[in-house]
Nucleic acid binder design. Structure first.
Length: 448
RNA sequence: GACCCUAUCGUCUAGUGGUUAGGACACCACCCUUUCACGGUGGCGGCCGGGGUUCGAAUCCCCGUAGGGUCGCCA
């Protein structure tokens, strides 16, 4: 029988990074075993469900490359879907739930109480066999010992999570439930429900959670908790996927950068660690830089243009060859695309401005004297190319008996307004003689 | 409060009775270098505590402690 796993998010308006990893692990497992990934939207809480909230999920998963074999194609609950076990929105499956509850009621496995329907929970402890955690025997808590039964249909007629989750898993033929460990304590309820419906429960695999850097629970408002953060701040999906995979799973061969194809080959549920992991933004950034560096120039260029547009810089105002040459000097220098605007913005502006403090430091009388000499030397150059510019600058430094840095720093500041940036010689060549001289002249005329 | 899970450098991890406890990120120093990065070399830094079992425990058991989760007419 084919393995069927599912990701069943509730549309809350954002996709938690932990949820993204759960989706990813489900996907990895499905692809590893050649099974199916089902996407099901748990939109039973009608109050906070909107199409926009579903779009956040669909968009996030697609960005990561987590594709599903069955599930909705759009954020419209009544819209098209693929798969023969639909609909895949719980709001469209109410009749199934009603029928199932009636069956439980008829067999006295559930009963009405104050308008709600309660399930008769077995009084004996239930053992949860878990692929990751092992066998978990859960005793009743003191509160449950007083009243083990639980509500499966609210008095307003709405079925609750435990019920619909189980019914859908059952009817969709889910064989493996891979979900966050926060569900582990609730699993006995689900197992009892499966048994009440006369079927064997699926195989469970509860994956550990992602915590904040300080070890506290990562909730909505915490820094980096939302997948959209990475999407918006210029991370590449490959890096995010790679990083997420290394939280709770390891290739065990000391490698960090692994193409997803290889992760699929080597991934298995039984090797997932049992303890929670803390989110380390610094490592993600490092990994993202690795992916950016290794990226082919065309894709780098494309993502750069997108990032610049988001930063309010319209590259269409400039010749294509100029934009490409400019961005080429940035390749391999950035950790995220979000840094690009600040790093390369000087290429795409007519008027650069200097920070007063930086200018006061760089454009001293001595600095300006050197800049003037550099301008003259550059002016005599037959070709305004990186090669010539470098030779020229170094030659002048030799004549003046100063370190090359003494010329490089004021020149960089004059032409870019920054103290850090791409290779000076290359950026000068890209900027071109006219712009360089114009900016140097303005710098020479600078007075606090 | 009860129940469940977990515990190796600051962080992510390798390790399944005998290792100088390995790697990566971060951090520090030096080298390279036009800045910043990259790269290179080196360094700092860990088995939560206490009892067992064993010739021998990071590894197995128990007890603490700490962190996380759950106990809803939320999902």
């Amino acid at each position: 029988m084919s393995i069927r796993v599912r990701f069943a998010p509730s549309p809350t308006g954002f996709l938690h990074i932990g949820g993204a990893r759960t989706a990813l692990f489900n996907w990895l497992y499905a692809r590893h075993v050649g099974g199916h990934l089902i996407l099901r939207i748990e939109d039973t809480d009608t109050a906070r469900n909107t199409q926009a909230a579903v779009d956040v999920i669909l968009h996030g998963l697609r960005w990561l490359g987590v594709n599903w074999d069955e599930g909705p194609l759009t954020s419209d609950a009544t819209g098209p879907y693929k798969g023969d076990r639909g609909p895949y929105y719980q709001s469209q499956r109410q009749e199934n739930y009603r029928l199932r509850v009636e069956a439980l009621l008829a067999r006295d496995m559930a009963y009405e109480h104050e308008g709600a329907v309660r399930f008769r929970m077995p009084r004996e402890p239930i053992v949860v066999p878990d692929l990751i955690v092992g066998e978990v025997r859960r005793e009743l808590t003191d509160r449950e010992a007083r009243d083990p039964d639980f509500v499966i249909v609210r008095s307003d007629g709405q079925p609750v999570f435990h019920l619909v989750n189980v019914i859908d898993d059952l009817e969709m033929g889910i064989t493996h439930v891979i979900r966050g460990e926060d569900h582990l304590s609730n699993t006995p309820k689900h197992i009892a429900l499966f048994r009440a419906f006369g079927v064997a429960p699926p195989v469970y695999a509860h994956i550990p959670l992602i915590l904040n850097p300080d070890g506290s629970k990562m909730s909505k408002r915490d820094q980096g908790a939302s997948l959209s953060t990475y999407l918006e701040e210029g991370y590449t999906p490959e890096a995010v996927v790679n990083y997420l995979c290394l939280l709770g799973w390891s290739p065990k061969d000391n490698r960090e950068i692994l193409p997803v194809r290889e992760i699929i080959d080597r991934f298995d549920l039984s090797q997932i660690l049992r303890h929670n992991a803390r989110f380390d933004m610094a490592k993600l950034q490092w990994m993202n830089a690795e992916y950016m560096r290794a990226m082919n120039p065309d894709r780098f260029y494309e993502l750069c243009v997108h990032a610049l547009a988001k930063a309010g810089i319209d590259t269409n105002r400039f010749p294509l060859s100029y934009v490409k040459a400019a961005l080429d000097t940035c390749h391999g220098k950035l950790k995220t695309f979000a840094e690009l605007g600040g790093y390369a913005g000087f290429y795409f502006t007519d008027e650069i401005s200097w920070d007063t403090e930086a200018a006061a430091k760089g454009f001293t009388a001595e600095g300006r004297d050197r800049l003037r000499r550099l301008r003259n030397a550059f002016g005599a150059l037959p070709e305004f190319t990186a090669l010539h510019l470098e030779a020229c600058l170094k030659n002048l430094a030799g004549q003046l008996g100063v370190k090359v840095g003494a010329l490089v720093h004021p020149a960089r500041l004059a032409c870019t307004g920054k103290t850090v940036g791409p290779s000076l010689y290359h950026l000068l060549e890209v900027l071109g003689r006219d712009k360089v001289f114009e900016r140097v002249d303005r710098a020479l005329a600078w007075n606090g």
